[in-house]
């Protein structure tokens, strides 16, 4: 855990150095959020049919998505990738630490630092200027907070798993791309999951990806009632454990026949 704080602090400092990049990133996400909000508003104007989610709920869902975008497992650890490509990974393997735990805390820090940097100013902006609504109740707010922590853990567990897959195929991009595609579509980032066709709901709800986005946001909106909180949290925790275990097994077997590329 101490490595987590060390990496978190280092990430923060390096992010702070790039003030123009931080500001540009923030503006990008505001811009992006605006586009999405306008598109959804246009869709809601075009139909009088009863929808599974209200227009204003969708807007809040979108702003939450922009605020916490950086927490998604959208890339592999570029430093690790470079190490594997150049063969420098050999040094990682001889360190006297449990490599998997180290990679996991590293991934967790990687996800948390940029997310915290962006979430606060973006939420302030959305509340003040965009009319984003607060959590429906104190309980919903608390449930959201807990579920969001689980979402970040899930994201870090997926990232670690993806990092491990790079030990198998050097250009690791393949698995990452496939996973990223699934995340984009089935987490709720593109379209809030309740808007997907009704027949697809059971499949989407079983998949791990909703735990990254949809679960916490709908708790916030009260769209998932507090009575179901324990169930959806268990769903998140189950998938966190599943990815951690799968990653550990994959790593153990990759290390057994370790071929350090390029070395």
């Amino acid at each position: 855990m101490s490595s987590y704080w060390a990496i978190l602090s280092a990430r923060f400092r390096s992010l702070l150095q790039y003030r123009a990049a931080a500001l540009a990133g923030l503006m990008t996400q505001v811009f992006w959020g605006l586009i999405r909000v306008m598109i959804f508003q246009a869709f809601y104007r075009s139909s009088n049919a009863e929808q599974p989610m209200s227009g204003s709920d969708v807007e809040t869902y979108i702003w939450l998505g922009q605020a916490f975008l950086a927490a998604l497992p959208w890339n592999v650890d570029t430093d690790l990738r470079a190490m594997i490509r150049t063969g420098g990974i050999g040094y990682e393997l001889v360190r006297p630490v449990d490599l998997y735990s180290y990679w996991f805390s590293r991934a967790l820090a990687w996800r948390t630092a940029p997310m915290l940097m962006r979430a606060v100013p973006l939420l302030v902006f959305a509340f003040v200027l965009m009319g984003m609504s607060p959590p429906v109740s104190l309980g919903a707010g608390l449930a959201f907070a807990v579920s969001m922590c689980a979402a970040i853990m899930l994201s870090a567990a997926m990232t670690t798993f993806l990092n491990v897959t790079m030990l198998w195929t050097i250009a690791g991009d393949g698995v990452m791309q496939l996973t990223f595609g699934l995340i984009m579509i089935f987490s709720g980032m593109l379209v809030p999951l309740p808007l997907f066709p009704d027949w697809s709901q059971p499949v989407i709800n079983a998949m791990p990806f909703r735990g990254l986005v949809d679960t916490p946001y709908r708790l916030y909106l009260g769209h998932i009632p507090l009575s179901e909180f324990a169930g959806v949290l268990a769903h998140q925790l189950f998938w966190i454990m599943a990815f951690l275990i799968a990653g550990r097994i994959a790593m153990a077997s990759a290390l057994r026949k370790v071929v350090v590329q390029g070395g």
Partner: peptide, 12 residues
């Protein structure tokens, strides 16, 4: 090795 998977992922 990862070429096809990458292609599939990109398509998705």
């Amino acid at each position: 090795a990862s070429f096809l998977m990458q292609l599939a992922g990109r398509l998705l």
